[in-house]
Design a binder for these strands. Structure first.
Lengths: 337, 337
DNA sequence: GTTATTAATGCAAACGTTTGTGCAATTTTA
DNA sequence: TAAAATTGCACAAACGTTTGCATTAATAAC
């Protein structure tokens, strides 16, 4: 291994002191009245030997690492990998690197992951929280590093968040069904206590109630997995009171539901209509293309980073509890009745 | 912000010296004959105050950060997000954290990203390289940190890699088509100089030639994007010599091809058969489900991490150029003729 | 009752930075 | 021409660890 370049090695070669070199390389030359000549000599030598500062040493000294932690539930879920993508690029745009970790939707892992991030002295944490209790993250936010939530958030907590207006999304889907003559509409949920789930269901229920539709048919489950979507839909399709429309609360649930629907020999649209939450390239290639409530993932990621940066810079002039409007993308999975 | 706990703060409270505390907390108590009592006092105090060592300081001192860099082409591609997932979890399994970065399939960004990882003193780098010239990464591997390649690799380079036996995959797909009576088989490629592309095409061509099929119909393009798959297929379908089967070299190309096929009013299987490279949950939900050559992503990720760890531990007893066999997953996108 | 061993712990340097302060040399002011 | 101000840079401490070596006290050997 080649000896790593450092301020010391450059100092030895140029004859200038470590502090002078540090100042030059940090653009503080004029502030400290370093001579033109010194600046010239030092910066060209730094370039020549391809000097890269040690972010470890830098971080140790300054307590800033230019690193953000990003905690999501599961990288495999395209919704989260999209968000991660945005966050990573936005952060990079502002000179930050992100460490991505997933909690596997499990509070124990979440804590461990947070601990690991903090031991790396991340400047802040952007997270999709998985527990029901905000206390842990609030404590981190107050005592260790600023926290910004995305997707999931807490009711009675000061923690900043940016998410979709899930209530509105729930309403949009349901109203769309109603407008097309559906009356028996089932709603297949994911993690029941999560805010997105709660709000989507609330939107759905409110619209149903308002339309005077007696029974709100929906099944409640464990998590946002394909398997769960499959099982719930299976149950649903075997029940007496079969719906004409299904509102699946995530892309994963949708896949599970489709599997169950296929197995029943039913055809989407012809036999049973479907609207899903979440957007995704693949949804246009399914049979039929799926009508869906798309979340503005780009904006969510971008705003989360923005809020984080403001917080890191000590500014406080920004709204920090943000719900962005979803969008209905109309395709062919809903029939008129 | 709460004052961070450190060896110093624990030292002050327990009365033991920093070195003693360090040794106890690193499990070196008996090696240094620390008394039972000291061990007891120190570890309980560390637990009480929730001490977490600073990995910055640790890394600075020991030159080991327990961090790996992972460079992929594009997080949004499900193939890469799958691999990332595996690598991240395997690394975690062995006590390593990974920093994920993408090069956007662009040599300039690749270099910048490597530089950034090195300034963070990652212990090693696992990468899907994007250039044609191995020199840069070889240099890093020799002088800075061990490098392990995945997916793409170089012919005349000592760099370790783990990838799929793409040649075999190319053969499998083509033979499958032949066995079902197809003679006019087109192959839609991605990044033409990348090893996976080259090898898949070679497998395809060899089989065609061997079967005495005169013309190898294939189009060559720019990258593995959906758009590229779309454009190439569009061209292909407008040509005189329309094929009865298409071999798409990645999941992204497949989507583009499907779009073009749909637009031509053709039906997959009935009118034109398709086999794609890569595996993915969604492929089973397409219309029809797509027959495909699946790469063993789990094994690729796992082995890459394993090779990296061996390299970090100075062991050298492992084969470091590995091609794993692909698997044909038979679905409904290929018709008999 | 010396001397050698062993047990238990502390000292201090080093990793590569940043930054407040100090100080000599030069220039300006009066 | 002496005092004051400015210019240009270096010193050294600090960030939180690890680790080779030193030190002290107690025990064992003779």
């Amino acid at each position: 291994m080649m000896k790593k370049e450092s301020l010391v090695s450059i100092s030895k070669r140029t004859g200038y002191s470590i502090s002078t070199i540090s100042r030059v390389l940090n653009g503080q030359a004029e502030k400290y009245r370093i001579s033109k000549k010194a600046v010239e000599v030092i910066s060209s030598e730094a370039k020549r030997c391809n000097y890269t500062p040690s972010l470890l040493a830098k971080g140790l000294r300054t307590r800033k690492t230019k690193t953000l932690g990003l905690i999501i539930l599961n990288i495999d879920n395209p919704y989260f990998s999209n968000i991660s993508n945005i966050v990573i690029h936005q952060a990079k745009e502002h000179g930050y690197t992100v460490i991505l970790a997933d909690s596997l939707e499990n509070e124990h892992d979440e804590r461990e992951v947070v601990r690991s991030l903090l031991s790396r002295q991340v400047d802040g944490i952007i997270a999709v929280p998985c527990g029901q209790d905000p206390y842990f993250l609030e404590d981190i936010n107050k005592n260790s590093a600023p926290v910004v939530l995305i997707d999931r958030y807490y009711q009675n907590s000061g923690l900043p968040y940016v998410s979709t207006n899930n209530y509105q999304g729930g309403r949009m889907a349901t109203e769309y069904f109603l407008a097309r003559g559906h009356k028996k509409i089932a709603c297949i949920c994911g993690t029941p206590y999560s805010m997105p789930s709660i709000e989507r269901v609330r939107g759905y229920s409110d619209v149903m109630k308002n339309a005077g539709l007696e029974s709100e048919i929906f099944v409640s489950g464990e998590d946002f997995s394909i398997m769960n979507g499959y099982l719930e839909t299976k149950l649903l399709l075997n029940s007496k009171n079969k719906p004409t429309a299904i509102f699946t609360l995530s892309n994963t649930i949708l896949l599970g539901a489709m599997k169950a629907i296929n197995e029943s020999g039913l055809k989407i649209s012809e036999d049973i209509s479907v609207i899903s939450f979440d957007n995704n390239t693949y949804l246009d290639y399914l049979n039929p293309p799926i009508t869906r409530i798309s979340q503005p993932t780009d904006e969510i990621g971008t705003l989360a980073v923005k809020i984080m940066l403001q917080s890191l810079e000590g500014k406080r002039d920004m709204e920090t509890k943000i719900l962005l409007p979803p969008e209905l993308i109309e395709r062919d999975s809903v029939a008129k009745r």
